[in-house]
Design a protein around this nucleic acid. Structure first.
Length: 530
DNA sequence: GTAATGGTTGCTAAC
DNA sequence: GGTTAGCAACCATTA
């Protein structure tokens, strides 16, 4: 009897999920079964690069999928272990029971996933299992974009925009939402109850404790809730604000705004696939089309934000060693600090102990809530790298990867490359000031710093972003002594940023000398054949 | 080959 | 308060 196995990885949703829809459609024959599977890979579970909030958000997303499946009498099978081993066992069990197995999943372009999925295709081929994959995580398939661009990966946004608007086919309508999926029979449940084999109930979405993760204190648990329901609710709520949607300009939004934030906070849902980028796109188009006041355009518009995601996905796909400096052909080679003190400085930055309230408030919000505004990311990334500490963007990216609930390999890497002036952006002499920048966003930035750094709650506004300049009498009055209740600044920004600009210039000049001769015209940055 | 142009989001002082 | 030049001057693309 036919069994269509749907492998959930991203795309933790029932709306616009082509792979799941096809798997469901394949179950129309009598006695056929849909088996929804998720594999908790030790590559992700055991590594420390996923923080508590990211785990919580993920498990909530998984629970929401299981809840939706359960409403139709189905159930998510959550297997824990190395995917190839698990699927091998699963397939053997099904085949031994006389089933004809087929596998459905959404394609994933990140390096680890590409290797994993290639191995999976081999495994399936060896067992005569038909595999069906679908591109639905992004609006455009990165390899298609590169192909229509003559094998060249666009590394300038405007070039990318030209390619997708002029050379790519129109974005297809979303796949209809699955309101009903085939129920899972008791026989199938009994067959796949691995409790004895693995020591856990695989038909139960695990808790934090189950996967060996501690739940932290209340103040460190993100207020952002995961799941498809929450994603669609947020999308709907945001799209109701038609003026805001049509007038959206990213650089004009306020990084210090909270309750509500000045942007959509849909990124964590897009990352998990709790929200389909295509659904977002079509809902946005509806608002644009109905608008009488016109609407903003990429790169600053809301559509422009969706396209940035596409841009970085494509760059990440087409660039070797994208997440590293060494061996990355588009990355400026910069001798970032690696001395002992840089470890101490990195830690101060990561834990919000720099002595610059704006920087520290951002890093504290990041740790507590798992999300910070894009321009806040700019501020702290510039501070860590070319602005102040001269520490590698790779080390900063790892901290973000752990703490951000929307941590997405392509986007996180791309933005760090940008901010450190290693790729995409090269005006390294434009440095964000840890004091001057937040002043532009008063009074929200004042409230923001007071919220995330309670020690500065009563500190005079005049000195809030540079508290070391505050007269000691006023420090006493505010109940916050700098150097005791809140750290002294870890560096002199004005002096050190000037020195760093000089170092960047040297690194850029040396890069020019060291760079190999340019490839013939039209053959630049060709994509390696798969 | 060279010059001009534009690049989502800097800061400061001067008008 | 809003706009502009200077800062010292980047890159990728296009004319």
């Amino acid at each position: 009897m036919p069994v269509a196995v749907h492998w959930f990885r991203k795309a933790l949703r029932l709306h616009d999920n082509p792979a799941l829809a096809k798997a469901v459609a394949a179950c129309s024959a009598p006695n056929s079964s849909l088996l929804p599977v998720y594999t908790l890979d030790p590559h992700f579970v055991k590594n420390s690069h996923i923080g508590t909030n990211r785990w919580l958000f993920f498990l909530e997303s998984l629970q929401d999928v299981d809840r939706s499946l359960s409403e139709s009498g189905s159930k998510l099978l959550v297997l824990r272990g190395e995917p190839m081993t698990l699927f091998s066992t699963l397939f053997d069990t099904l085949i031994a029971n006389g089933e004809t197995v087929s596998l459905y999943f959404e394609a994933d372009t990140s390096p680890y996933a590409r290797n994993r999925d290639a191995a999976m295709l081999e495994l399936c081929a060896s067992k005569n299992i038909a595999v069906h994959t679908f591109n639905s995580h992004t609006l455009f398939n990165p390899s298609d974009v590169i192909k229509v661009n003559g094998g060249i990966t666009p590394i300038v946004y405007q070039s990318f925009l030209k390619v997708i608007t002029e050379k790519m086919p129109a974005i297809q309508p979303a796949t209809p939402t699955l309101t009903q999926v085939p129920p899972l029979s008791d026989e199938m449940k009994a067959l796949l109850t691995y409790t004895e084999t693995f020591g856990f109930d695989a038909f139960q979405v695990p808790s934090m404790e189950d996967i060996g993760k501690a739940v932290p204190g209340e103040n460190l648990v993100s207020t952002h809730k995961g799941g498809e329901r929450e994603a669609l609710k947020r999308l709907e709520e945001y799209m109701k604000q038609k003026d805001l949607v049509c007038k959206f300009q990213k650089p004009e939004t306020n990084p210090a705004a909270f309750q509500p934030a000045s942007t959509t906070i849909l990124s964590p849902y897009l990352k998990m696939g709790s929200l389909s980028a295509r659904t977002f796109y079509h809902e946005l188009m509806k608002v644009y089309r109905a608008s009488k006041i016109g609407y903003t355009k990429p790169p600053v518009s809301l559509l422009g934000q969706l396209y940035w995601r596409e841009f970085y996905y494509t760059a990440g796909y087409g660039t070797p060693n994208f997440d590293k400096m060494l061996g990355n052909p588009i990355c400026k080679q910069i001798p970032w600090r690696t001395d002992e003190q840089s470890n101490v400085d990195l830690e101060k930055w990561a834990t919000g102990q720099t002595g610059f309230p704006w920087i520290d408030a951002i890093m504290i919000q990041l740790k507590q809530e798992g999300w910070i505004h894009h321009l806040a990311r700019h501020s702290v990334a510039c501070f860590l790298t070319r602005g102040d500490l001269y520490i590698s963007w790779e080390r900063g990216a790892k901290v973000f990867e752990k703490l951000l609930i929307d941590a997405d390999w392509s986007l996180n890497t791309g933005n760090w490359l940008w901010l450190s002036a290693s790729a995409f952006f090269h005006q390294y002499f434009r440095v964000y000031g840890p004091v001057s920048f937040p002043k532009k966003y008063a009074p929200e930035s004042v409230k923001y710093v007071r919220k995330y750094i309670p020690a500065l709650k009563n500190f005079p506004e005049k000195y809030l972003f540079e508290p070391w300049k505050c007269p000691i009498a006023d420090q006493k009055k505010a109940g916050c002594i700098i150097g005791k209740d809140y750290p002294k600044p870890m560096c002199d920004h004005d002096a050190v940023s000037k020195v760093n600009i000089g170092k960047m210039k040297v690194a850029y000049d040396e890069g020019k000398v060291a760079s190999p001769p340019k490839a013939p015209k039209g053959k630049k940055r060709p994509l390696d054949e798969d």
